[in-house]
Design a protein around this nucleic acid. Structure first.
Length: 666
DNA sequence: GACGAAAGTGTTTAGACAGCATGTC
DNA sequence: CTAAACACTTTCGTC
């Protein structure tokens, strides 16, 4: 099947042909057969880099009306926005938390947005979603991710409800149960293992890589080396580069990514002084300096402690083949497109808080899938590094020959369900438990489960929201008995028969919480904080920051053992400014972490530089950046909540004003 | 008793979406 | 619960 045979305008055909796309890849042809160009729903489960974007473009370009492309990451949104912008005669808009198109989103042919942004737009009643003709969901397998999967499925379900005739195209990594996703969406499934570049996967142990295609590769590793895995990794990286390729190396922690990069940069791999200069200009913190030094040796490291700008510079330089190697934490596996000839996965376990755990098969496969640059490499190679022969066998069984995990809905998570139940009521999509359940019936969770399994959960979640005064529940028959707080939050305690008939309504607080896009629990914590602040003599910036940092929407900052004592003293010294009685809290550790975060942000607001804070509190510049960003959002939300509950939002507004994003430039 | 090496002990560890209101060559 | 690198401390051996 050729591009010119497709129902596309001449200038589009010319655009593709000039980019070298003439003949369709087999999965693309299969998607056309399945009806992507005829408005049919299609789920595409194929490996990375096998042309999913083109399939999405076909759907969006042939649909009669505007299209929406949903992505999981802001960096990905930008990448897709740029790609689609090159299409002739197509107006593209973008909408993420940090970037928004100037025009009303309804005026574009294609809008690229994060799932959260779409969810938020739906909640605030955006009308453009009703006119959509096509929705593409990139990386649908994220349906199974704990924090963000529920948002994705509720958003998809709601979109389907709002625009029943909309075409849904879902793009997935290869997972175990794409048929279930397809079934849920009423879609045709296109499933394939085809790749434009061959990929062979192997395991290294004791001087030799055994590939799954039967070939082997001898690797000369120095016997005296104290760490055999690292030595092998170094050799594998160097081998790929000597061969004219590029290489990605995945390790477990940030520190190890930096250590490996530093070591490789001394191996005479290449030089990229211009890039090093750009990196120095973009940030002078210690991390940035070390990165620049590595880059002078042709190698970079990449992890979330890096500033977003540094990350983007590294990714672009690698794509431009300026950089030969990136040593990364798993950040890179799911992010923007950075293909390499060889991928080396030195560590396959990760710390999780309760010991080391094997990485999910899906994640390892995604790392492996980065191997093989179309049109540049004759093949791609992925190598897992094992300690010994026993490890080789284990890795082969676990990853090389294994199917990835199935995608499972996470909607039953209490926290997630609270958020979405509140949103459904607050935005007027339902005014009873019955109505909420009706809407949730269209989710992936409900697809192959009896409806009752959600009913009990929804009921108990509604009880939470009523207790927090975000919802009111009026029962039709018996009069609402106020004050009976019913101490236990026990699930499914159906009192007085069928509650589902009652009327649900969002309070002003509930509406504010939903609109500000904060978790109900965060809202409750803020309300509690505002009430305590009323009786306090010294309400300061620290007070406001403590409240906001002590919520589930703000992540804590790691508290070292030695630091703990210092933080404790700090908290005691400032006890009069804090809303929490440290003797009474049952989550002392977690709270002390919040105080640390608040303290860092306060110093930032008072003009401390990135360098000072990174040094003093041992966090990466990227971590600081993301915390400042989140704090701004949460402080704004807290001020809005204060207005609604009749509190004083001044403290929140004042710090927020001083919390400027970045002073360190120039 | 001084010194340094070896063995023991404790610490640390990945990632990153959202609101809102303005200003800019 | 299933780890491993690293920093820091204590112990031990030698002269």
């Amino acid at each position: 099947m050729r591009v010119r045979d497709l129902p596309l305008a001449d200038d589009l055909v010319a655009h593709y042909e000039s980019a070298g796309i003439v003949e369709l890849y087999p999965p693309q042809a299969a998607a056309v057969d399945a009806g992507v160009t005829r408005g049919e729903n299609v789920v595409v489960a194929v490996p990375t880099a096998s042309g999913k974007t083109f399939i999405a473009e076909l759907a969006m370009l042939t649909s009669e009306g505007p299209a929406l492309y949903i992505v999981p990451l802001r960096a990905l949104a930008r990448e897709k926005y740029e790609t689609f912008s090159e299409l002739p005669g197509v107006e593209v808009g973008i909408s993420t938390g940090d970037l928004d198109s100037a025009e009303e989103l309804g005026s574009y042919d294609i809008v690229v947005a994060t799932a959260e942004k779409v969810d938020s737009a739906i909640r605030s009643g955006a009308s453009w979603v009703d006119d959509l003709a096509c929705v593409v969901v990139d990386e649908v397998h994220l349906l199974g991710s704990k924090g963000r999967g529920p948002t994705l499925e509720v958003t998809i379900a709601t979109l389907g409800r709002r625009a029943p005739d909309v075409q849904v195209v879902a793009l997935s990594a290869t997972v175990d149960n794409p048929d279930e996703i397809a079934d849920w969406l009423g879609a045709e499934l296109v499933r394939s293992r085809w790749r434009p570049v061959d990929l062979r996967t192997g395991v290294y142990a004791e001087g030799r890589v055994d590939f799954d295609d039967g070939s082997t590769l001898a690797v000369a590793v120095d016997e005296d080396e104290e760490n055999a895995d690292t030595a092998a990794t170094v050799e594998l990286v160097r081998g790929a580069i000597d061969d004219g390729g590029q290489c990605l190396a995945f390790v477990r922690s940030r520190r190890e990514a930096e250590a490996l990069a530093t070591r490789l940069s001394g191996e005479g791999i290449g030089t990229t002084d211009a890039l090093a200069e750009e990196i120095r200009e973009a940030g002078q913190a210690d991390t940035g300096r070390r990165l620049a030094e590595c880059v002078e040796g042709g190698v970079a490291f990449h992890h979330a402690g890096l500033r977003a700008e540094h990350r983007a510079l590294v990714e672009n330089a690698f794509r431009g083949r300026e950089l030969k190697c990136i040593c990364a934490t798993p950040t890179l596996a799911a992010g923007v497109n950075v293909p390499a000839r060889r991928v080396v996965i030195r560590d396959q376990k990760r710390y999780t808080g309760s010991g080391m755990e094997w990485l999910p098969v899906l994640e390892v496969h995604q790392m492996c899938g980065r191997a093989g640059r179309p049109h540049l490499d004759p093949y791609g190679e992925a190598v897992l590094v094992a300690g010994d022969e026993a490890g080789r066998e284990e890795l082969r069984e676990r990853y090389v020959g294994a199917e990835p995990e199935a995608v499972e809905s996470q909607l039953a998570d209490r926290e997630a369900l609270r958020t979405h139940v509140l949103a459904i009521v607050a935005s007027g999509f339902a005014d009873s438990q019955r109505g909420v359940l009706d809407l949730l019936d269209a989710t992936f969770y409900a697809h192959d489960r009896p409806e009752e399994s959600l009913a009990g959960l929804v009921e108990s979640v509604v009880a939470d929201l009523v207790e927090w005064e975000m919802l009111t529940a009026e029962t039709g028959e018996n009069e609402a008995s106020e004050g009976e707080t019913e101490g236990g939050t026990n699930d499914g305690e159906a009192e007085g028969g069928n509650e589902s008939g009652g009327t649900l309504a969002a309070t002003a607080l509930g509406e504010a919480v939903s609109r500000q896009y904060i978790a109900p629990q965060t809202g409750a914590r803020i309300v509690g904080g505002i009430e305590t602040m009323r009786g306090m003599e010294s309400v300061t910036g620290l007070t406001a920051l403590e409240v906001v940092c002590d919520t589930p929407d703000m992540h804590g900052t790691y508290l070292g053992n030695r630091e703990r004592a210092t933080m404790y003293q700090y908290a005691r010294r400032h006890a009069a400014e804090l809303t929490t009685d440290m003797g009474a809290t049952d989550r002392f550790e977690r709270w002390l972490e919040s105080v640390k975060t608040a303290r860092i942000l306060l110093e930032w607001a008072e003009g401390a530089s990135t360098e000072e804070l990174v040094d003093e509190y041992r966090i990466g510049p990227g971590d600081l950046e993301s915390r400042v960003e989140r704090a701004q959002w949460l402080l704004g939300a807290a001020a809005a909540v204060a207005d609604v509950v009749g509190g004083d939002g001044t403290a929140f507004r004042e710090v927020r004003e001083r919390l400027v994003p970045d002073l360190s430039d120039e």
